[in-house]
Design a protein around this nucleic acid. Structure first.
Lengths: 206, 206, 206, 206
DNA sequence: AATGAATGAGGCTTCATTCAT
DNA sequence: AATGAATGAAGCCTCATTCAT
């Protein structure tokens, strides 16, 4: 990419980034159309290629940008003292919602990366995705799971939470307009139930 | 479509059906390419249009075929006496794996329908998908949930299972080659944990 | 072509000839579709190519057939004693209408040859068309034009009649169904006016 | 269509218009090939669709353009005082020849519209053609026919002139290269003969 | 003789990418 | 920096022609 992109007015940068992310998130890499981004961002077709050599270059940039932005906000928004699994998970979602205010399609875009089928796209952004996953793993690494029942396998439990939250997110984005309250409501109810289900049965007092 | 398609040798029919399903499942309706199906099925481009008027006609046919085939096998493979949630879920997965032996991409294809973004495709197959969902709902309707803990909300629980199993399925299909044992292993471990987590804490013996 | 075509039942031969002529006449050589002929004649696609090697072979055959058939009927239907221009012209039209009873599209088909734009088609049938024109010329060669006014140039007059009758024919064929009475009516009225217009003003008697 | 087409250099606009008209005129709507236009106009395939959404859009544009251009020149080139049938007819032909200097295929193209067989094309341009016909009708409406012999029916006479001139035009266009002098020569000779044939026999002086 | 399944070149159209202005 | 005209490869689909039965 051409670093001069960052010399553009911030507002224009963001229009371009949001336009690209939206179109990529909703269509996947291969079917994302340049013309749609042009309409979405109100910026001429030539300019995209002036700053990003080609489609895969733009894609790589946007993935990189989204990942780094979210990681930055995660660093700021997650307190290391937080040792509860569910609090941590909820904090991560809060960060996503915060990011969404500046970049409305970042949460869906990151989620959509898992389903990307174009090999070219997968190859190009694998390392960024891994960085993001690593960040999430780190966030959970200090979590204390001592309250969990013994039959709760950590990996299976995390996978369950992760897949389900991804499903909720995508369902909410599929609606006419994303409703943050609706989304966070569903997340909280889900996490609350998972919490009850996973905790050691309170020891019956004598 | 041209009904004479069914006069073709079964093996050729299946090569075409499997080719179409694979390409649709991996790329979505809009990006699925005729040329790729041609290569996949080893059948000339013209022949597809000899039997199916156009791309949407082929898509509709394949969805219809997959849905009806799975529903038939579900009818045969699910015993009405089965009242356990987890046994029922496992039986459904067994049916999918059975279908997979004849039509390797049916499970992924059906799963991919939820993410279809092309409005034309959605409009064309909505009713078939609904039939399938209804069949699944019916299978669960006779399930006895009396053993579940009181804090387990039925809808949230089902959603959790459904999203997670969808996630596992897609991950397994993303591998080089789908490994049935690996898939069923993960499914069983997951269901087993969900079972323990959801059951009423065993009454403490005196 | 394969001469065995003539061993077919006459009725089937004619169905094929009529089907081909209709489709060629209405669409021109290049746009005439094999499938349309198949439907029109109720004869399988393969059979056309069994008797006529390819499209241009079929076209050549049909032109040849139409020309020869019309020329035969002209030989039978035009009396050499007929020396009036307008009677001759009308007789030619009567022959066309006679031919039309067996081969409904021959008149339009022959007329359409003038507008054929495909070079391949023009090259293939040039000689047949010339034979037909020669026949027509011969029919007029013995016509007595002594009654015509001196300012009536023979070639211009003939051209006028020829183009106008062609125009009338095509207009009538463009109708829902060709109506012989309507056509012959218009022809007669036209010829009658041309006759009056072309004749030497009757010498005013003293 | 994209109105920015008119921002192109006039010379390029005209190359495209002429290329399209030529290919449409010679082949009819359905058989007119994009590739042929590309070669004819020396302009890439994609560019046609940049300005005209699709083939029928291009066709509509070209018909509209030809009709309006001719009508404008007719308005300029026909004097209202002209009340002679033959002068009017000749003036119309002069206008066509004038138009031909800028757009060589307009006369043939307009003439070819009568034979168009594609229903889609007919539906798309019906109103434009009607406008043109109305303009021609208007030009003739003020013509004085008092000099015509009583047995000359106006409609039959006009039809005769119209069909014959159409025939001459098409014959001349079928030649290697259209020769304006040859065409106008034939037209004048034809009209001159028709004039003599149609006039009231000069009253014999005493 | 007769059928129609099968093929692939060619037609219209889309879209990532280039380039003159 | 910015535009959008321009290109051509690739996509869906049609159709003349071939060939197994």
């Amino acid at each position: 990419m051409n670093e001069k992109f960052f010399d553009l007015k911030k507002e224009k940068q963001d229009r371009m980034i949001n336009g690209a992310m939206k179109v990529f998130a909703l269509n996947g890499y291969a079917r994302a159309s340049t013309d749609e981004m042009v309409k979405e961002a109100g910026v001429s077709k030539g300019l995209w290629f002036h700053y990003f050599d080609n489609k895969i270059g733009l894609y790589t940039f946007v993935v990189d940008y989204a990942v780094k932005y979210v990681m930055m906000e995660l660093s700021a928004g997650l307190s290391a003292e937080n040792t509860d699994f569910f609090d941590t998970t909820l904090d991560i979602e809060k960060v996503k919602m915060l990011v969404r205010r500046s970049y409305p399609y970042v949460p869906l875009f990151l989620s959509s990366l898992d389903q990307e089928t174009s090999q070219e796209a997968i190859d190009a952004v694998g390392e960024y995705i891994e960085m993001y996953r690593e960040k999430i793993r780190t966030a959970y690494s200090s979590v204390d799971r001592s309250g969990f029942a013994p039959y709760v396998d950590e990996r299976i439990f995390d996978m369950t939470v992760s897949f389900t939250m991804k499903g909720i997110l995508e369902e909410e984005y599929a609606k006419e307009a994303f409703d943050e309250r609706s989304y966070m409501g569903r997340v909280k109810v889900f996490l609350s139930q998972m919490k009850k289900m996973s905790q050691e049965a309170p020891v019956e007092e004598a």
